[in-house]
Protein backbone atom coordinates (compact mmCIF):
# COMPACT_ATOMS: atom_id res chain seq x y z
CA UNK A 1 0.00 0.00 0.00
CA UNK A 2 2.73 2.38 0.98
CA UNK A 3 4.36 1.74 -2.33
CA UNK A 4 2.37 4.54 -3.86
CA UNK A 5 3.60 7.05 -1.32
CA UNK A 6 7.12 6.33 -2.39
CA UNK A 7 6.29 6.33 -6.05
CA UNK A 8 4.39 9.55 -5.62
CA UNK A 9 7.34 11.07 -3.88
CA UNK A 10 9.61 9.68 -6.55
CA UNK A 11 7.67 11.27 -9.35
CA UNK A 12 7.49 14.56 -7.52
CA UNK A 13 11.18 14.38 -6.65
CA UNK A 14 12.12 13.50 -10.21
CA UNK A 15 10.01 16.27 -11.65
CA UNK A 16 11.11 18.94 -9.26
CA UNK A 17 14.77 18.03 -9.25
CA UNK A 18 16.89 20.55 -11.03
CA UNK A 19 20.33 20.19 -12.44
CA UNK A 20 22.73 20.48 -9.54
CA UNK A 21 26.02 20.15 -11.32
CA UNK A 22 27.10 23.45 -12.75
CA UNK A 23 24.72 26.19 -11.76
CA UNK A 24 24.63 26.11 -8.01
CA UNK A 25 23.66 29.78 -7.76
CA UNK A 26 20.55 29.49 -9.86
CA UNK A 27 19.70 26.18 -8.16
CA UNK A 28 19.87 27.83 -4.79
CA UNK A 29 17.85 30.80 -5.98
CA UNK A 30 15.20 28.58 -7.54
CA UNK A 31 14.99 26.50 -4.45
CA UNK A 32 14.82 29.51 -2.18
CA UNK A 33 17.02 27.84 0.42
CA UNK A 34 20.66 26.92 0.60
CA UNK A 35 21.75 23.50 1.86
CA UNK A 36 24.70 23.85 4.16
CA UNK A 37 26.64 20.90 5.58
CA UNK A 38 27.63 21.27 9.22
CA UNK A 39 28.78 18.97 12.04
CA UNK A 40 26.36 16.83 13.95
CA UNK A 41 26.95 19.03 16.95
CA UNK A 42 30.02 20.83 18.25
CA UNK A 43 29.14 23.59 20.66
CA UNK A 44 30.39 26.95 19.41
CA UNK A 45 30.91 25.86 15.83
CA UNK A 46 27.59 24.32 14.89
CA UNK A 47 25.04 22.93 17.28
CA UNK A 48 21.27 22.95 17.48
CA UNK A 49 19.77 24.39 20.64
CA UNK A 50 16.75 23.08 22.52
CA UNK A 51 14.45 24.57 19.87
CA UNK A 52 16.39 23.07 16.99
CA UNK A 53 17.85 26.42 15.93
CA UNK A 54 21.40 26.03 14.66
CA UNK A 55 23.98 28.45 15.84
CA UNK A 56 27.74 28.68 15.90
CA UNK A 57 30.80 29.94 14.10
CA UNK A 58 30.44 27.73 11.03
CA UNK A 59 26.71 28.27 10.98
CA UNK A 60 27.29 32.01 10.75
CA UNK A 61 29.23 31.52 7.51
CA UNK A 62 26.31 29.58 6.04
CA UNK A 63 23.90 32.27 7.10
CA UNK A 64 26.06 35.01 5.64
CA UNK A 65 26.22 33.27 2.25
CA UNK A 66 22.46 32.66 2.33
CA UNK A 67 21.89 36.32 3.16
CA UNK A 68 24.11 37.36 0.27
CA UNK A 69 22.49 35.07 -2.28
CA UNK A 70 18.91 34.87 -1.10
CA UNK A 71 18.57 37.95 1.04
CA UNK A 72 17.47 35.91 4.02
CA UNK A 73 19.95 34.58 6.57
CA UNK A 74 17.40 32.04 7.78
CA UNK A 75 16.93 30.51 4.31
CA UNK A 76 19.44 27.78 5.16
CA UNK A 77 18.76 24.08 5.51
CA UNK A 78 21.40 22.67 7.80
CA UNK A 79 22.44 19.16 6.91
CA UNK A 80 24.34 17.44 9.69
CA UNK A 81 27.23 15.45 8.27
CA UNK A 82 29.81 13.15 9.82
CA UNK A 83 33.45 12.98 8.88
CA UNK A 84 32.53 10.11 6.62
CA UNK A 85 29.61 11.62 4.81
CA UNK A 86 30.58 15.23 4.36
CA UNK A 87 32.56 14.89 1.13
CA UNK A 88 30.05 12.68 -0.63
CA UNK A 89 27.26 14.96 0.47
CA UNK A 90 29.04 17.84 -1.19
CA UNK A 91 30.17 15.93 -4.26
CA UNK A 92 26.71 14.53 -4.91
CA UNK A 93 25.06 17.94 -4.67
CA UNK A 94 23.15 17.15 -1.51
CA UNK A 95 24.67 20.25 0.04
CA UNK A 96 25.79 23.44 -1.65
CA UNK A 97 28.39 24.52 0.85
CA UNK A 98 30.29 22.56 3.45
CA UNK A 99 31.16 24.55 6.55
CA UNK A 100 32.17 21.82 8.93
CA UNK A 101 35.53 22.79 10.37
CA UNK A 102 37.20 20.98 7.51
CA UNK A 103 40.96 21.14 7.15
CA UNK A 104 42.27 22.45 3.86
CA UNK A 105 44.67 19.82 2.59
CA UNK A 106 46.29 19.16 -0.75
CA UNK A 107 44.49 15.87 -1.46
CA UNK A 108 41.10 17.22 -0.53
CA UNK A 109 41.60 20.17 -2.79
CA UNK A 110 43.22 18.38 -5.70
CA UNK A 111 42.38 14.68 -5.53
CA UNK A 112 38.87 14.87 -4.12
CA UNK A 113 38.08 17.84 -6.41
CA UNK A 114 36.84 20.40 -3.96
CA UNK A 115 37.48 24.06 -3.74
CA UNK A 116 38.28 25.67 -0.43
CA UNK A 117 37.03 29.22 -0.59
CA UNK A 118 39.15 30.54 2.23
CA UNK A 119 40.04 30.00 5.84
CA UNK A 120 37.70 31.06 8.57
CA UNK A 121 39.67 29.60 11.43
CA UNK A 122 43.35 28.80 11.81
CA UNK A 123 43.50 25.82 14.07
CA UNK A 124 45.94 23.15 15.12
CA UNK A 125 45.70 19.83 16.83
CA UNK A 126 46.30 19.88 20.56
CA UNK A 127 46.02 17.67 23.60
CA UNK A 128 43.88 17.95 26.70
CA UNK A 129 44.82 16.09 29.84
CA UNK A 130 43.61 16.06 33.46
CA UNK A 131 45.67 18.34 35.65
CA UNK A 132 46.20 15.65 38.28
CA UNK A 133 48.39 13.62 35.91
CA UNK A 134 50.96 16.38 36.16
CA UNK A 135 51.91 16.38 32.49
CA UNK A 136 53.12 19.67 31.13
CA UNK A 137 54.29 18.74 27.65
CA UNK A 138 53.08 16.46 24.89
CA UNK A 139 56.55 14.89 24.85
CA UNK A 140 55.74 13.26 28.16
CA UNK A 141 52.82 11.36 26.71
CA UNK A 142 54.73 8.15 25.92
CA UNK A 143 52.58 5.11 26.74
CA UNK A 144 49.38 7.09 27.13
CA UNK A 145 45.94 6.07 25.94
CA UNK A 146 44.67 8.73 23.58
CA UNK A 147 41.03 9.34 22.67
CA UNK A 148 40.62 10.57 19.10
CA UNK A 149 37.54 11.74 17.35
CA UNK A 150 37.60 9.82 14.09
CA UNK A 151 36.87 11.10 10.65
CA UNK A 152 39.33 13.94 10.70
CA UNK A 153 42.98 14.45 9.97
CA UNK A 154 43.70 13.95 13.67
CA UNK A 155 44.49 10.23 13.43
CA UNK A 156 47.20 10.89 10.88
CA UNK A 157 48.74 13.81 12.76
CA UNK A 158 48.75 11.81 15.94
CA UNK A 159 50.41 8.81 14.34
CA UNK A 160 53.03 11.07 12.77
CA UNK A 161 53.70 12.96 15.99
CA UNK A 162 54.22 9.89 18.13
CA UNK A 163 56.32 8.20 15.48
CA UNK A 164 58.50 11.25 15.08
CA UNK A 165 59.06 11.48 18.81
CA UNK A 166 59.51 7.74 19.09
CA UNK A 167 56.76 7.22 21.66
CA UNK A 168 54.22 4.46 22.06
CA UNK A 169 50.51 5.12 22.55
CA UNK A 170 47.16 3.39 22.42
CA UNK A 171 44.64 5.13 20.18
CA UNK A 172 40.96 4.93 21.13
CA UNK A 173 38.95 6.08 18.12
CA UNK A 174 35.54 7.52 19.03
CA UNK A 175 32.78 8.48 16.64
CA UNK A 176 31.15 11.44 18.37
CA UNK A 177 32.44 14.24 20.51
CA UNK A 178 29.94 13.47 23.30
CA UNK A 179 31.17 9.90 23.60
CA UNK A 180 34.79 10.97 23.51
CA UNK A 181 34.07 13.29 26.42
CA UNK A 182 32.44 10.49 28.34
CA UNK A 183 35.46 8.24 27.81
CA UNK A 184 37.88 10.94 28.72
CA UNK A 185 36.04 11.99 31.87
CA UNK A 186 35.70 8.40 33.05
CA UNK A 187 39.45 8.00 32.73
CA UNK A 188 39.21 5.44 29.95
CA UNK A 189 41.80 7.51 28.17
CA UNK A 190 44.45 9.81 29.55
CA UNK A 191 44.47 12.32 26.78
CA UNK A 192 41.89 13.70 24.41
CA UNK A 193 43.14 15.07 21.14
CA UNK A 194 41.39 17.04 18.46
CA UNK A 195 41.64 20.56 17.08
CA UNK A 196 42.55 23.03 19.81
CA UNK A 197 39.32 24.93 19.28
CA UNK A 198 37.35 21.73 19.69
CA UNK A 199 39.27 20.96 22.87
CA UNK A 200 38.39 24.34 24.28
CA UNK A 201 34.74 23.86 23.34
CA UNK A 202 34.73 20.42 24.93
CA UNK A 203 36.44 21.60 28.07
CA UNK A 204 33.95 24.42 28.42
CA UNK A 205 31.16 21.85 28.74
CA UNK A 206 32.85 20.04 31.64
CA UNK A 207 31.62 20.35 35.19
CA UNK A 208 34.98 21.65 36.39
CA UNK A 209 36.90 22.89 33.36
CA UNK A 210 39.80 24.03 35.52
CA UNK A 211 40.76 20.41 36.30
CA UNK A 212 41.91 19.95 32.74
CA UNK A 213 44.78 21.54 30.89
CA UNK A 214 45.38 21.95 27.20
CA UNK A 215 49.02 21.20 26.50
CA UNK A 216 51.08 23.91 24.81
CA UNK A 217 52.12 21.76 21.83
CA UNK A 218 50.10 22.22 18.70
CA UNK A 219 51.16 19.31 16.52
CA UNK A 220 49.62 20.24 13.21
CA UNK A 221 48.40 23.03 11.01
CA UNK A 222 44.65 22.89 10.62
CA UNK A 223 43.40 25.71 8.46
CA UNK A 224 39.63 25.26 8.60
CA UNK A 225 37.45 26.70 5.92
CA UNK A 226 34.25 26.33 3.98
CA UNK A 227 34.41 24.47 0.68
CA UNK A 228 32.37 24.00 -2.46
CA UNK A 229 32.45 21.67 -5.44
CA UNK A 230 35.25 22.02 -7.92
CA UNK A 231 34.33 23.51 -11.26
CA UNK A 232 31.51 25.83 -10.29
CA UNK A 233 33.44 29.05 -10.13
CA UNK A 234 30.50 31.45 -9.86
CA UNK A 235 29.31 29.77 -6.72
CA UNK A 236 32.85 29.45 -5.39
CA UNK A 237 33.41 33.17 -5.94
CA UNK A 238 30.25 34.08 -4.06
CA UNK A 239 31.23 31.95 -1.08
CA UNK A 240 34.84 33.17 -1.18
CA UNK A 241 33.97 36.85 -1.33
CA UNK A 242 31.23 36.60 1.25
CA UNK A 243 33.81 35.22 3.65
CA UNK A 244 36.25 37.94 2.59
CA UNK A 245 33.59 40.58 3.09
CA UNK A 246 33.09 39.43 6.66
CA UNK A 247 36.81 39.60 7.32
CA UNK A 248 37.25 42.91 5.53
CA UNK A 249 34.28 44.35 7.39
CA UNK A 250 36.09 43.84 10.66
CA UNK A 251 39.22 45.43 9.27
CA UNK A 252 37.34 48.51 8.12
CA UNK A 253 35.20 48.73 11.21
CA UNK A 254 31.88 47.80 9.63
CA UNK A 255 29.77 46.25 12.36
CA UNK A 256 26.17 45.15 12.49
CA UNK A 257 25.54 48.21 14.66
CA UNK A 258 26.88 50.87 12.34
CA UNK A 259 26.34 49.22 8.99
CA UNK A 260 23.09 51.03 8.23
CA UNK A 261 24.76 54.32 9.00
CA UNK A 262 27.77 53.48 6.84
CA UNK A 263 25.53 52.44 4.04
CA UNK A 264 24.39 56.01 3.65
CA UNK A 265 27.81 56.60 2.14
CA UNK A 266 31.24 57.21 3.64
CA UNK A 267 34.53 58.78 2.71
CA UNK A 268 36.18 55.41 2.38
CA UNK A 269 35.84 54.07 -1.16
CA UNK A 270 36.65 50.54 -0.01
CA UNK A 271 33.74 50.50 2.47
CA UNK A 272 31.51 52.00 -0.18
CA UNK A 273 32.47 49.31 -2.65
CA UNK A 274 31.84 46.56 -0.12
CA UNK A 275 28.47 47.97 0.84
CA UNK A 276 27.53 48.55 -2.75
CA UNK A 277 27.12 52.29 -2.65
CA UNK A 278 29.98 52.65 -5.12
CA UNK A 279 30.87 50.46 -8.07
CA UNK A 280 29.08 47.31 -9.05
CA UNK A 281 30.97 44.45 -7.41
CA UNK A 282 27.72 42.65 -6.69
CA UNK A 283 26.72 42.56 -10.30
CA UNK A 284 30.05 41.05 -11.22
CA UNK A 285 29.22 38.21 -8.84
CA UNK A 286 25.82 37.83 -10.44
CA UNK A 287 24.09 39.22 -7.38
CA UNK A 288 22.80 42.65 -6.55
CA UNK A 289 24.98 45.34 -5.02
CA UNK A 290 23.73 44.89 -1.49
CA UNK A 291 24.97 41.33 -1.17
CA UNK A 292 27.78 42.09 1.24
CA UNK A 293 25.59 44.47 3.21
CA UNK A 294 23.14 41.66 3.85
CA UNK A 295 25.90 39.15 4.62
CA UNK A 296 27.45 41.40 7.23
CA UNK A 297 24.09 42.51 8.57
CA UNK A 298 23.11 38.88 9.18
CA UNK A 299 25.54 38.08 11.98
CA UNK A 300 27.93 40.99 12.08
CA UNK A 301 31.49 41.02 10.84
CA UNK A 302 34.09 38.31 11.37
CA UNK A 303 35.14 39.68 14.74
CA UNK A 304 31.56 39.87 15.98
CA UNK A 305 30.84 36.32 14.87
CA UNK A 306 34.00 35.14 16.60
CA UNK A 307 33.21 36.98 19.81
CA UNK A 308 29.60 35.85 19.90
CA UNK A 309 30.21 32.14 19.30
CA UNK A 310 33.67 31.14 20.47
CA UNK A 311 35.30 34.29 21.82
CA UNK A 312 36.68 34.94 25.24
CA UNK A 313 33.37 36.02 26.72
CA UNK A 314 31.70 32.73 25.78
CA UNK A 315 32.13 29.51 27.78
CA UNK A 316 34.45 28.27 25.04
CA UNK A 317 36.73 31.19 25.62
CA UNK A 318 39.07 31.09 22.63
CA UNK A 319 41.41 34.01 22.19
CA UNK A 320 41.86 35.44 18.72
CA UNK A 321 45.51 34.35 18.43
CA UNK A 322 46.28 33.51 14.82
CA UNK A 323 42.76 34.48 13.90
CA UNK A 324 43.23 38.15 14.67
CA UNK A 325 43.29 40.63 11.81
CA UNK A 326 46.65 41.01 10.12
CA UNK A 327 46.73 44.53 11.50
CA UNK A 328 46.73 43.00 15.00
CA UNK A 329 49.39 40.43 14.22
CA UNK A 330 47.06 37.66 13.12
CA UNK A 331 46.59 35.91 9.79
CA UNK A 332 43.17 37.21 8.79
CA UNK A 333 43.81 39.15 5.63
CA UNK A 334 41.10 39.87 3.14
CA UNK A 335 42.18 40.71 -0.42
CA UNK A 336 41.17 44.17 -1.58
CA UNK A 337 37.67 44.84 -2.78
CA UNK A 338 38.20 46.59 -6.07
Amino acid sequence: MNKSVILGTLTVAALSAGMASAQTVSDVQDRGTMNCGVTTGLVGFAAPDANGEWSGFDVAVCRAVAAAVLGDPSAVEFVPTTGKTRFTALASGEIDLLARNTTWTFTRDVDLKFEFVGINYYDGQGFMIPKELGVSSARELGGATVCIQTGTTTELNLADYFRKNNMEYTPVPIETNAEAQQQYLAGACDVYTTDASGLAATRAAFETPSDHVILPEIISKEPLGPLVRHGDNEWGDIARWTLNALIAAEEYGITSANIDELKEGTDSPEINRILGTEGNLGEMLGLDNEWAYRAIKANGNYGEIFAKNIGESTPIGLSRGLNAQWTDGGLMYAPPFR
Binding site: T40, G41, L42, V43, A47, P48, D49, A50, P80, T176, N177, A178, E179, Q181, Q182, A204, A205, F206, P315
Partner: peptide, 10 residues
Protein backbone atom coordinates in the same frame (compact mmCIF):
# COMPACT_ATOMS: atom_id res chain seq x y z
CA UNK B 1 24.13 13.49 19.21
CA UNK B 2 22.41 16.73 20.15
CA UNK B 3 21.22 15.82 23.64
CA UNK B 4 24.41 14.36 25.07
CA UNK B 5 26.44 17.02 23.28
CA UNK B 6 24.46 19.88 24.77
CA UNK B 7 25.97 21.70 27.69
CA UNK B 8 22.91 21.13 29.88
CA UNK B 9 22.70 17.38 29.59
CA UNK B 10 26.27 16.33 29.00
Amino acid sequence: GPILASTEWN
